[in-house]
Amino acid sequence: MTAPLIEAQSLRMEYRVGRGQVLRALDGVSLAVRPGEVLGLVGESGCGKSTLGRCLLRLARPTAGRVVFDGTDITALPERTLRPLRQGMQMVFQDSYASLNPRRRIGDLIAEPLRVHRDGQGRRRTAADIAARLAELMDLVGLPQAALARYPHEFSGGQRQRINIARALALSPRLVVADEPVSALDVSIQAQIVNLFMDLRDRLGLTYVFVAHDLAVVRQISTRVAVMYLGAIVELGDADTVLHRPAHPYTAALIAAVPEPVVLPDGDRAPPLRGDVPSPIAPPPGCRFHTRCPSAQDRCRTDPPALRDPGDGRQVACHFPLTGG
């Protein structure tokens, strides 16, 4: 088994939200992503998936626990020591417009990381090096060279996301964390960008952590999937195993709730999950999901289940995991 490229060990992230209350965005999350893997992080708003993505890149500093990137513990590294490592890990965000300074040309925006960081030999990159790299990047993400001289507002959402990907790839990172990178795009454009992510992984041997709420998109791109609920992982495993034969009732409910472009008779629809996600400031005791779980029993109300392997290589945090599926 190869060593993980990025690893989270018992991560906790707490925010003080006033009146002495604490919001626990991450409550003891552990996972490892190996080189070449695509880990899909799914869950509803407030489950902690974005916070986890940000902690992995040390854009947020976890309250407790460790983040290990390529064998180095980066949890508490000072910014100066962290900077050279940052070349190896990059991020793509949901809002393609907010991520780009509207007053700068695309060429400048993508060149910035190349100007800030030195090259492999510790030398500043020359203007010619940068120009050559920009040309390469445009080809890589499928944009015309002429785009370099234009401004962000001149592009459509899909093209802007290509620009953001080009910038993220400028320093040849090994790990890319993408936070909802296609959710603001129209479906026809979304498919183009999902394909681009998959092509780039194959061509450049990238490793992704792909944060998304859309299960179908996550299934398309991920090799493994982690399902989160209220700051904790409830199920983690091979994408096909988890999404085809979910063991956690929450995973099953999420899948059932996705409206599919197929017309079914009214009676064939599973009844929707009841209620809302409880507040992460005061999560329910026991299993966090018991307030909405169709198969909750007494034990679930008091005894929080730990992640364990039900016997097929995945991990599930449930006292009564579903079988068969």
């Binding site: 479906v187 026809s188 498919a191 394909n195 998959m198 299934r219 398309q220 085809h244 996705v258």
Partner: peptide
């Protein structure tokens, strides 16, 4: 084309999603 470009939740995963070129 719009229906095709939606990634399926069930069944085989296509190697590439059929997408609509341009915008």
């Amino acid at each position: 084309a719009l229906l095709d470009s939606i990634p399926p939740l069930h069944g085989a995963r296509p190697a590439r999603l059929p997408s609509i070129p341009g915008s």
